[in-house]
Design a protein around this nucleic acid. Structure first.
Lengths: 105, 105
DNA sequence: ACGAAGTGCAACTATCTGGTTGCACATGAA
DNA sequence: TTCATGTGCAACCAGATAGTTGCACTTCGT
């Protein structure tokens, strides 16, 4: 079993929010960005983005890197593998496609 | 991009709840069960389970099958592939492991 | 030194959600 | 028919959460 449950709860919950997923996508696509820069790309305020980033950071999906007065956030995704692992485990025996995926972990 | 967004929100949100994931696991492991049977396996009431099942059904992760006065729920997981797809897409270029998984979609 | 730009903290609000209880309706068995 | 079992519906509650606004603090450039 991939064991620990609480991180998994956290991961799914964090990824459940569309804004958060979009933030992740931006970070992956455009490289490390600051909260302010990200806020420009969204309808919401900087503070809202900051909150999302904090949650993402708590879940280890993002890591803050300070340089002077600004903080750039970088996407880090070892954690996503945990989610995939659960999904494959959950669907074990369900269908062939899952089996194929599972075989290549 | 990775297709429809709203169902993805729904999927992540539904999977974010530990009870819901546990229900899914029970259904996969023990075969189709009724809400009442499931409720016996959890600390919560039947009604709570019913709500979870409704959400799971809305997300097409479970399908109700009525027979007489009882309704058995069966796990159906084509949808889980969508989640995996997003995860792999999101992590594209991130690390080697993701790449390996991605290659076998 | 001073102002602008960026970040951090806190309070407050509205909404969502997981859970409960209570009761009515439907079905199977004696 | 009668009763137990199972399902369905609705109101209600407490806590979480996404979002806002306002303000204080820090750092860089001129």
């Amino acid at each position: 079993m991939s064991s620990e449950r609480r991180p998994l709860d956290e991961l799914f919950a964090v990824l459940a929010d569309p804004t958060r997923r979009a933030v992740l996508e931006h970070l992956v696509h455009d490289g490390p960005l600051t909260a302010t820069e990200l806020a420009d790309r969204f309808p919401s305020t900087r503070q809202a983005i900051v909150k999302h980033l904090k949650l993402l950071a708590d879940a280890d999906l993002v890591t803050p890197e300070r340089s002077g007065r600004e903080v750039r956030y970088r996407a880090t995704t070892e954690r996503l593998a945990d989610v995939v692992t659960w999904l494959l485990g959950a669907s074990a025996g369900w269908d062939r496609r899952a089996e194929r995926l599972r075989a290549h972990r």
